[in-house]
Amino acid sequence: MFRIPSNLDVGFVAFGLSFALMPLALADSAPGSVRTDVKIEAKDFKGTATPAATPNPLTLRSLSATHAADVHLYVAKPDTKATHTLRIQSK
């Protein structure tokens, strides 16, 4: 029924545990990492020499290329210590 684990078994278990716990360790360490607290105050910055804006109104039809690869289906997930969901109204 029971046998003394071989080195290979112990290695597998140790590797599995460390790998499985890695995301949790990263999540805990991220909030403690250096994080700046900067909000835009227009007087503190100079604008870039960006191209002039068009006088035509922006509409959905104006837009073309998108980052389609990063889009996925919505899945509701509960918040955790490291993650947060904010609901924002549009009207």
């Binding site: 991220a30 990492s33 250096v34 994080r35 700046t36 607290d37 900067v38 909000k39 835009i40 922006l58 509409t59 959905l60 837009l63 290329a65 998108t66 980052h67 389609a68 990063d70 889009v71 996925h72 289906l73 919505y74 899945v75 924002i88 549009s90």
Partner: peptide, 30 residues
């Protein structure tokens, strides 16, 4: 930008650890 989202779709718009307490979003909605 841009990410085009249909109903019940999400976009991962930033895939690194957040480094600032503030970010800014915009949505052009149909």
């Amino acid at each position: 930008g841009w990410w085009h989202l249909k109903k019940n779709q999400c976009a991962t718009v930033y895939q690194q650890p957040l480094r600032n307490t503030w970010g800014y979003i915009y949505a052009q909605i149909s």
